[in-house]
């Protein structure tokens, strides 16, 4: 018994699983409308965009060297409005506009990566600049001359654009089944089963040792920032399709939530430690709390507070339990 308990508290993933189960059971008993197949599958769609961004954040933070990407929300906004302008105003088919949007996200991530790894500028500075530049660019692109100098959202999409964000397969939202879960599986595989994954953990936990063992530090860091751009673009595609509107401000505020989820999921802010599974659990917990609070009719102002409280609370509890065990 004592052994099981030790494992649970010292293993982030098991600890989060336990927290998840406790909350799940608690909500099922106390909140009417929470425990039924419809709600449980319906709410998963609200974790997808944040989950993709948190995964992006996890990769960047894992790579160490003060790695952080504050520009994920702005990249999401820019890609969203880019797709909107191409499809809604220029009349492009989504078949071309969506890949181009993903490419644009990749380009922005690559640009961040070049500045960080080749330009040797602190990630915080680079991506903070990115946060403002990409957001501003999104607003500029959104200006519709018809309405004067004001940025306008785009809402004229063909029906075929909505399948990603609004369709269901067997009752489960399309984007969960065909975007989020595959992406998670791919990254779980990459991180745990490939050389690249081992290099990433190596670079993150001990830069010097990694360089001496022949790992190309710059290449690894360049790759994670680029991947962060791609994941942000995927999130942009999903949210634009889901809300049927391309908005230059859609990603505002997501960057900090994404970092919070990554850290809650057990990604060490120093880099080199953490798993995809932990991030998934963190997203699941936060999505479930949001859903539960809303169904219980609890005022919205508590929701962001809940995110912070769960973060601090779970870390404190974890620390406390580990400390106690040592005595």
């Amino acid at each position: 018994m004592r052994n099981i308990w030790d494992t649970v508290i010292s293993n982030r993933v098991l600890f989060l699983s336990l927290l998840f189960v406790i909350l799940f059971v608690f909500f099922s008993f106390t909140i009417p409308g929470f425990f039924n197949l419809y709600n449980l599958s319906n709410m998963t769609q609200y974790g997808v965009e944040l989950g993709l961004l948190a995964l992006a954040e996890a990769l960047v933070i894992l790579s160490g060297g003060g790695g952080i990407d504050l520009s994920v929300g702005s990249m999401m906004s820019l890609v969203s409005i880019l797709m909107g302008v191409l499809i809604g105003r220029a009349g492009w088919s989504p078949v071309f506009a969506v890949p181009l949007g993903i490419l644009a996200g990749m380009g922005m991530g690559l640009f961040n990566g070049i500045l960080v790894s080749l330009g040797r500028i602190l990630p915080l500075i680079v991506t903070l600049a990115g946060l403002y530049m990409y957001r501003s660019l999104a607003l500029i692109i959104a200006v519709d001359p018809q309405f004067g100098p004001n940025p306008m959202p785009v809402s004229t999409f063909p029906e075929s654009f909505y399948f990603v964000g609004q369709y269901r397969v067997g009752g489960i939202p399309f984007q969960v089944l065909f975007i989020f879960l595959p992406v998670l599986l791919i990254f779980h595989f990459l991180l745990s089963r490939t050389t690249w994954g081992r290099q990433l953990y190596g670079v993150g936990s001990n830069e010097t040792a990694a360089v001496f063992s022949g790992i190309n530090l710059k290449k690894v860091r360049l790759t994670v920032y680029t991947l962060s751009g791609i994941l942000s673009a995927l999130a942009a595609w999903v949210i634009t399709s889901r809300i049927a509107s391309a908005r230059p401000d859609v990603g505002t505020g997501y960057e900090l939530q994404a970092i919070t989820i990554a850290v809650l999921g057990g990604i060490s802010i120093q880099g080199g430690e953490g798993t995809v599974g932990g991030v998934l659990l963190a997203v699941a917990i936060i999505t479930m709390i949001n859903n539960g609070l809303q169904l219980a009719g609890i005022h919205q102002i508590w929701q962001l507070g809940a995110l912070g409280a769960v973060l601090v609370g779970s870390v404190l509890l974890n620390q406390f339990l580990i400390q106690r065990r040592k005595i």
Binding site: N39, I239, R247
Partner: peptide, 15 residues
């Protein structure tokens, strides 16, 4: 927030 407003409406439907 546009997306949040939609999520809130969706949860009202669930309720």
């Amino acid at each position: 927030d546009v997306a949040k407003q939609i999520e809130i409406i969706d949860n009202l439907i669930t309720q």
